[in-house]
Each structure stands twice: as C-alpha cells, then as structure tokens.
Nucleic acid binder design. Structure first.
Lengths: 205, 205
DNA sequence: GTGGTTCTTGCGGAAATCCACAATGGCGGC
DNA sequence: GCCGCCATTGTGGATTTCCGCAAGAACCAC
C-alpha cells in the first residue's frame, strides 16, 4: 500500500509552494496538483493520507472535487482552504464530512496540527478498513448455499431447523457449516457472529 | 418518557417569541428559557428533542451551556444561533458535535428544516439508546461469576475449557451459562455475541 | 435462627454438534 | 471424455450441550 502523505490541490502556485515547504519543514511528505482535474486524473484508490483542497479554483472547485472523490469511494480526511469563506459555506462543507475548513491566511502551526490529526485519523481508518476488506474477501469465497446456511446460523437456528428450512439433510448442513467456519477463519458460531457484527456496524456508519 | 420538543435558550425576548411563534406555526412544540443558567436549573436527563441555543448571551454562553449539558450526558442535537459568527467559530462549534450553526437573521424555512432533521435524528438515537440501556440493565443483573463465564463464552471457549480455567465443575458452568442466557434474554451464544457486539460498537461511538 | 441469594456439584438422559470415511450427481472448462 | 468444484447424503462414533432433579456450603439480612 502507499504510505500516508498529504495531497495538495491549489491553483495558486505560491500557496502550493508555501504549503509544501511548510509540511516538508515538519517532515511531512506531500504532493501537489494545480487543478482538481489534474488530481482526478492521477487519483487512484490506493492513495492514502489526507487532502488539502482549495475551495475556489478555476474549473472544478474543491467541493466538486471532493464530491467526485467520495463518489469513487475515497474516504481520505479533507481539509479545505478558502480565501473568501463565509459561515454558511463552512457549515455546509463540514456537514458534508470535511475534516476541517480553514481560512487563508492560515496559521502555520495550526494547519500542521490539523494535518497531523487528519493523518492520524486516516491511519486508524485504514486499520479498520483492512479488517473489513479481509472479511469481505472471505465472504466473497462463500458459495450461495453457504451464505444461506450462514444466515440461518446467525439467526441462531439449530442445524435441524436449517435442514428443515432449506429442505436438505442435516449432514449437508453440517458440511456447509464446517466449510463456512473454515473459509471465514473462525472456530465457532460465536466468533462468526462477532466478526460479522463488527463488520456491519462499522460498515453502515 | 418526555415527548420530543424544542428547547429554546436565548436572552433576547424578541428572538424567543419569534422562534416560538414560527415553530408553533409548523406544529412543533417548544419551550423557552431566557438564560443558560435558567435552563441548566430546569434540565433533567429525561428531556428529549433538540436544543436551539444562542451563542452570545449575558452570563453563560451557548457553548458553555452545551459543554455543561454534554458533561451531564445530554446528547440532544443542538442548533446554535449567532448574530456575530465567524468561520473559525462555526468550525469549532461543529467539530465539537453541534448539529448546526446558523447566523441571524435566519431564513424561517431553512431553520424549520434543520429543526425537523434534528428532531428526527434524536428520534432514532433514542431508539438505539433504549436498546442499549436495556442491555445495560440486563448486564447489571449478572453476578460476578456469571460475567466471568460470559467472557469465556464470548471468547468462544467450550464449557470444558471454561470449567478448567475457572477451576469449577462443568455442571456449574452449564448452570451459569443457562442463567446468563435467561437473564440476557437470548437463546444461544450466537445471539449473545450479536447483542453485545452491537452494544459495544454503538457505545464506543 | 430463618430465609434469600449465590456458587457449587452430581447423576443421567435426550438432543445436538463435530468429524472421518465414503459416495453420487450436476455443471462448466480444457 | 476427464477434472475440478459444488451440493448432496449416509453411517457411525466421539464429544458436547442442554436440562430436570436434588442438594450442600457460604454469606448476608431481618
């Protein structure tokens, strides 16, 4: 996976340079783009870190870029910069899930602090995500029948009831059950329930 | 439990009256206070609905009141009103968990929309909370020994292993196990795992 | 001391789970 | 046609769970 870094998108070269210099001086790596369109071209889902987007840019705005990225499944924490912000815009931006909204000119230390917070949040999110996607992959290896049986197991049904419901022999249910445990990497129905409870509760957030 | 309503705190009588009238005209019930201190005196944990707080008041500010209420476990969604807001204040307020931050003068329809959203959020939160506290109550009825055994069950251990670990007879474990299920209102270890997984994942939010 | 709660244990049987060994039939790809 | 994957089933036995019946010991409260 890519290491965490700061992705900086601003059409003002002076700001880009100043920010890159600032971050570099605190040993934070960054990469810069001069337009939303340019970043969107380079973006790929393996990127990890935080975004710093200028709100008002020629062409696509920072907010539009943000929405595009979210639509593509990007969940990186995002700090917006603006030269002409107002309260309603700030509120709207944060309610859409932005990590922060900062007016230019900004205080260097404060910005760096926000960036570090964002990077840390991203870090923990990635860990959770890794667990989630592993579970996801394992779920994907289950056959249709196995998923049906698993649903019954999670509903707390006994093998006998499952057999009855799916119109198959108990022995078959047992085979499925064993294979589900094996594929999902658990050793009991309890572990399975915990794995999937955690999985769905994080996923629906 | 109290029905949902809007709790309005503002030291400006004109605003209070205007808001109360506005809400009433949309069939939304509200109650008003003229200071943070006055509300804090009347506050009790059974109140449910949403808060509308003026940011700047003589004496305790809206933000201070908000923090006080949070400290007391109040989780009502809160809309802040401000006559002299700026972007950093708006950002700080939202990042502390406010539901919205609205400048005066406000648009009537918009405000009502926010209030309705807040009330709806509160509604669903209350449902989740009710489930949580029921589980909490049930957990409280477990004896120490039962909690120990439950921990083992959730760790996926077999009765035999539990008996070994706690240095008691298998039969004793079985008794505890049955009583745990009975007290927690579940009928299998799987249901127990699901109940507690959901419980802790909502609780740590 | 009586009564209630909790923790403990044993016996014995019904029911369920787990598992190795063994096997059949369908389906799609090479 | 052969191979692999999937779903299916059976037998039989070891292991585990579930539960009623019965009961002893510790502890605390009234």
């Amino acid at each position: 996976m890519s290491p965490s870094l700061v992705y900086l998108v601003d059409d003002d070269a002076a700001i880009r340079d100043a920010l890159a210099w600032l971050l570099r001086s605190r040993s934070i790596q960054s990469r810069s783009w001069d337009s939303a369109e340019a970043f969107l071209r380079d973006y790929d889902a393996t990127m990890s870190g935080c975004l710093i987007l200028d709100m008002r840019m020629v062409g696509m705005t920072g907010m539009e870029l943000y929405e595009q990225l979210r639509a593509r499944g990007c969940a990186m924490p995002t700090i917006f910069l603006t030269g002409h912000g107002d309260v309603p815009l700030a509120v709207k931006t944060l309610k859409r899930g932005a990590f922060d909204f900062i007016e230019k000119p900004f205080n260097d230390n404060e910005l760096v602090d926000r960036v570090l917070e964002a990077l840390q949040q991203e870090e923990s999110r990635r860990w959770r995500d890794a667990d989630r996607s592993q579970t996801e992959e394992r779920l994907a290896t289950l056959t249709e029948r196995e998923k049906e049986v698993m649903a019954c197991i999670l509903a707390g049904k006994l093998n006998k009831m499952i057999a009855d419901e799916l119109q198959i022999a108990m022995r078959t249910v047992e085979v499925h059950r064993a294979r589900i445990f094996e594929k999902m990497g658990v050793r009991s129905a309890v572990e399975l329930a915990q794995l999937l409870s955690a999985h769905s509760s994080n996923g629906s957030r």
